Simulated assay, not measured.
Amino acid sequence: MAISLSKGQKVDLTKTNPGLSKVIVGLGWDTNRYDGGNDFDLDCSIFLLNANGKCASEKDFVFYNQLEGGNGSVVHTGDNRTGAGDGDDEQVKVDLAAVPAQVERISFVITIHDAEARGQNFGQVSNAFCRVVNEETNQEIIRYDLGEDFSIETAIIVGELYRHNGEWKFSAVGSGYQGGLARIATDFGLDVG
């Protein structure tokens, strides 16, 4: 039975699941109908952050054009451009035991591709969720349903895997941003110029 989290909640991952090292972080969403005439393309991006909350280099930014980071310990399984169908829309495989020591947090972000130009925002997105699955057993361990708290935002920091006293934990962040991926990337220390 998965632990269901609310915004702001944190939960142990490896301490309560001894031997767990390979997880899949699945993200999903539905888009509401609207007359903008443009398709929605939501994207998952992952930031590998050091103790200062920053990416040490561009290699610590994983997304649809750079599917691996952390020496192969974090792997984005590919871009889903439509969000059609049930279940996870995009997935990220994380080998917790292989994440480089300098990476203290792995932040999972969902953004709307080209949101400004298309006049799209998270007010038009529903049923967004993030879940953590044990890759070996395919058992869902954690689920975080984001709810309908967003309106004008074009990016959301959904959740984070982070180290604490040698163990991995998960935090349901649910923090919305305007300015899309560029704004978050800049906050995480990347030069997006």
Rank of each mutant, 00 (worst) to 15 (best):
residue 107 S to M: 11
residue 149 D to K: 15
residue 88 D to G: 00
residue 33 R to A: 15
residue 135 E to K: 14
residue 5 L to A: 08
residue 59 K to T: 12
residue 74 V to P: 01
residue 139 Q to N: 11
residue 69 G to A: 02
residue 135 E to L: 13
residue 30 D to V: 08
residue 15 K to M: 11
residue 155 A to C: 13
residue 176 G to I: 09
residue 142 I to Q: 03
residue 109 V to P: 00
residue 1 M to E: 12
residue 99 V to N: 05
residue 156 I to S: 07
residue 175 S to M: 09
residue 113 H to V: 02
residue 52 N to V: 07
residue 108 F to I: 06
residue 161 L to T: 10
residue 24 I to F: 05
residue 175 S to K: 14
residue 107 S to C: 11
residue 23 V to P: 06
residue 151 S to D: 14
residue 40 F to E: 09
residue 178 Q to W: 01
residue 117 A to H: 11
residue 128 A to R: 04
residue 183 R to K: 15
residue 14 T to D: 11
residue 136 E to I: 12
residue 91 Q to D: 07
residue 4 S to F: 14
residue 30 D to P: 01
residue 127 N to R: 13
residue 1 M to N: 10
residue 126 S to W: 00
residue 116 E to I: 10
residue 141 I to S: 00
residue 74 V to R: 03
residue 163 R to C: 02
residue 145 D to I: 00
residue 9 Q to R: 09
residue 22 K to P: 04
residue 158 V to H: 04
residue 127 N to F: 05
residue 92 V to R: 06
residue 62 V to Q: 07
residue 67 L to Q: 06
residue 86 D to N: 13
residue 122 F to T: 05
residue 74 V to Q: 04
residue 15 K to V: 13
residue 193 G to W: 06
residue 25 V to H: 04
residue 59 K to Q: 15
residue 13 L to T: 07
residue 89 D to A: 08
residue 121 N to P: 00
residue 57 S to V: 08
residue 22 K to W: 10
residue 142 I to F: 01
residue 91 Q to Y: 00
residue 158 V to G: 08
residue 140 E to D: 12
residue 15 K to T: 11
residue 80 N to I: 02
residue 120 Q to W: 06
residue 96 L to I: 06
residue 148 E to H: 13
residue 115 A to N: 09
residue 124 Q to R: 12
residue 98 A to F: 02
residue 68 E to V: 06
residue 45 S to I: 00
residue 69 G to Y: 03
residue 126 S to C: 13
residue 39 D to N: 10
residue 147 G to W: 01
residue 143 R to C: 12
residue 43 D to G: 04
residue 85 G to R: 10
residue 99 V to L: 05
residue 108 F to N: 01
residue 74 V to F: 02
residue 122 F to R: 04
residue 51 A to K: 13
residue 62 V to W: 05
residue 191 D to E: 11
residue 42 L to S: 07
residue 160 E to T: 04
residue 100 P to V: 02
residue 33 R to F: 03
residue 145 D to V: 02
residue 99 V to I: 12
residue 157 I to V: 15
residue 31 T to G: 00
residue 25 V to C: 10
residue 5 L to D: 05
residue 81 R to V: 08
residue 144 Y to T: 06
residue 182 A to F: 09
residue 39 D to G: 05
residue 30 D to T: 13
residue 39 D to H: 04
residue 27 L to S: 03
residue 138 N to K: 14
residue 83 G to Q: 05
residue 156 I to F: 04
residue 163 R to I: 08
residue 84 A to L: 10
residue 102 Q to D: 15
residue 183 R to G: 04
residue 160 E to F: 00
residue 12 D to K: 11
residue 78 G to L: 10
residue 109 V to C: 09
residue 142 I to G: 01
residue 88 D to N: 15
residue 156 I to L: 13
residue 10 K to M: 12
residue 16 T to D: 14
residue 128 A to E: 09
residue 155 A to F: 03
residue 100 P to E: 03
residue 11 V to G: 00
residue 37 G to H: 05
residue 36 G to Y: 03
residue 83 G to C: 05
residue 176 G to E: 02
residue 150 F to T: 08
residue 124 Q to L: 15
residue 139 Q to G: 04
residue 137 T to P: 00
residue 141 I to F: 09
residue 4 S to N: 15
residue 77 T to H: 12
residue 50 N to K: 08
residue 115 A to V: 05
residue 131 R to A: 07
residue 35 D to C: 03
residue 135 E to D: 15
residue 147 G to K: 12
residue 169 K to H: 15
residue 7 K to H: 12
residue 107 S to L: 12
residue 165 N to P: 00
